[in-house]
Design a protein around this nucleic acid. Structure first.
Length: 420
RNA sequence: CGGGGUGUAGUGUAGUGGUAGCACGAGUCCUUUGGGAGGAUUUAUCCCGAGUUCGAAUCUCGGCACCCCGACCA
């Protein structure tokens, strides 16, 4: 049984829709401003999102690692980014002996330095390394619930290529992987590859911006071409040539940045000593790129988009459970046994089920179920036991159907696209 | 970091100087059981510190926390 409780009322210290719903439904807990804990339901959603990203990163040939949160100041001094004037969102701390230490706000320094132990020849390239790791950023203002926090999980992939051509080939594949990820979590249609102000080795970087009122960015998008221009480079005439869009075809909208990809060039490899020997025996700096997605921010954006006045409405791919089994047994033993048995059978079939067997009134259960937003609700009351037909409700559409017990047990993952 | 606002039971709130109240939740008992049900009863160092006052949740000063707008977001 879930230890989390739902709340009837919105927390007084939150305004943003994603935080209000996620807290009311017991998915997350606010520790302090911009710092959130993930509770069982929220963690399941987050892990489902991470799972999808991980699959796509592996498909790209990415190898997963887990770097440290505690960072060596020396590497950051080498890259010139230790100073608070350069990076103003540092969280810094000290060792027992007084030595300085930083909490990671990104991992270019650490990964570049690490890879220098493993990349020595052109034969060692290209390489793609990624992780899901916590980043700490001392934001002056946390906002928008879990969309902009001071501690957050991030998927960061780093590419190590021999030259610009090899890099660009991967960059394009990474873009496609990102598009697959966003479409798998059902925001593909409203997510635009966006030209934004740039990296160090290219005039523009690419962001993936999802149309969303709660977003912090303003973009100008071309619906046909599926491209957009971030407002920050809107007045730069070159960007239209580069992007291949025409200013007059663009629509303005608020959007949330759900991913970004940067061409890092040799900026980090040069200073941190990541060189390889090419075919002619020359020492050459490795050509790098970085590719980020914030799974928690993504979860927040999805909560913003897929919700209604009753609560959350999760896309199937990331819902915490496939089915919400609501038993209306009360003190009726027959109904209870029927629901218990059905639950056991569904779990055995591999269906992930959240079972609400609390002895509370039906209205409260339905309201909670709406709030939690699990795609399908199965209701077991007198009718089910008497008629052997089981009521199933689609959370998104509100559609109600009565199906046989066999059909319920066929709801296992592979059979999910049967429009129930 | 500039500007504005708010801190009162677990949650949401009322209370502008004189006995801290309401709703929900939670505990116990009875009834109830297909869209947050009814009755009885229990549930608070009013964010922290200092000050003004016979008396402070309320006024003053300082601090802290939280929200919103803006700036920032490598």
């Amino acid at each position: 049984m879930l230890f989390t409780k739902t709340r009837r009322e919105a927390p007084s210290d939150e305004q943003s829709k994603n935080a209000v719903l996620l807290i009311r439904a017991g998915y997350i807990h606010k520790e302090i401003a911009g710092v959130y804990s993930y509770l069982p339901l929220g963690l399941r959603v987050l892990n489902n999102i991470i799972g999808i990203i991980r699959e796509e990163m592996n498909t790209l040939g990415g190898q997963e690692v887990f770097l440290t949160t505690l960072q060596d100041p020396n590497k950051w001094k080498t890259s010139g980014r230790w100073d608070d004037d350069v990076i103003d969102i540092w969280f810094k701390t000290k060792l027992k002996n007084g030595g300085p230490l930083g909490l990671a706000n990104t991992h270019e320094e650490a990964i570049t330095s690490l890879m220098s132990e493993h990349i020595a020849s052109y034969k060692d390239l290209p390489r793609y390394v990624y992780q899901f790791q916590n980043k700490f950023r001392n934001e002056t203002r946390a906002k928008s619930g879990i969309m902009r926090t001071r501690e957050f999980i991030m998927k960061d992939l780093y590419s190590f290529s021999a030259d610009k051509a090899q890099h660009e080939e991967f960059y394009e594949r990474a873009t496609q992987a990102y598009e697959r990820i966003f479409s798998r979590v059902d925001i593909g249609e409203r997510t635009y590859r966006t030209f934004a102000s740039g990296g160090s080795f290219s005039k523009y970087s690419h962001e993936f911006q999802t149309l969303c009122d709660a977003g912090e960015d303003t973009i100008f998008f071309d619906k046909e071409k599926k491209l957009a221009i971030n407002k920050e480079v809107y007045n730069d005439e070159d960007v239209y040539k580069t992007a291949g869009v025409h200013k007059e075809n663009l629509n303005e909208a608020r959007a949330a940045e759900v991913g970004n990809i940067f061409n890092l060039g040799t900026k980090f490899s040069e200073v941190l000593g990541l060189h390889y020997t090419n075919e002619r025996g020359e020492q050459v700096p490795v050509y790098m790129g970085s590719y980020g997605i914030g799974p928690a921010r993504l979860m927040g954006v999805i909560a913003e988009i897929f919700s209604d006045d009753k609560g959350l409405v999760w896309p199937e791919a990331i819902a915490p459970f496939d089915v919400h089994l609501v038993s209306l047994a009360g003190n009726n033993e027959r109904i209870r046994e029927y629901a218990d048995l059905l639950y056991e059978e569904m779990v055995t079939k591999g269906i992930s089920v959240l079972y609400d067997d609390r002895n509370v009134r039906a209205g409260e259960k339905f309201t909670d179920s709406d709030l939690l937003g699990i795609p399908r609700r199965i209701i077991i009351g007198k009718d089910a036991v008497d008629t052997e037909m089981i009521e199933i409700v689609n959370r998104a559409t509100g559609e109600t159907m009565r199906i046989t017990r066999e059909a319920v047990l066929a709801l296992a993952r592979d059979d999910k696209k049967n429009n129930l």
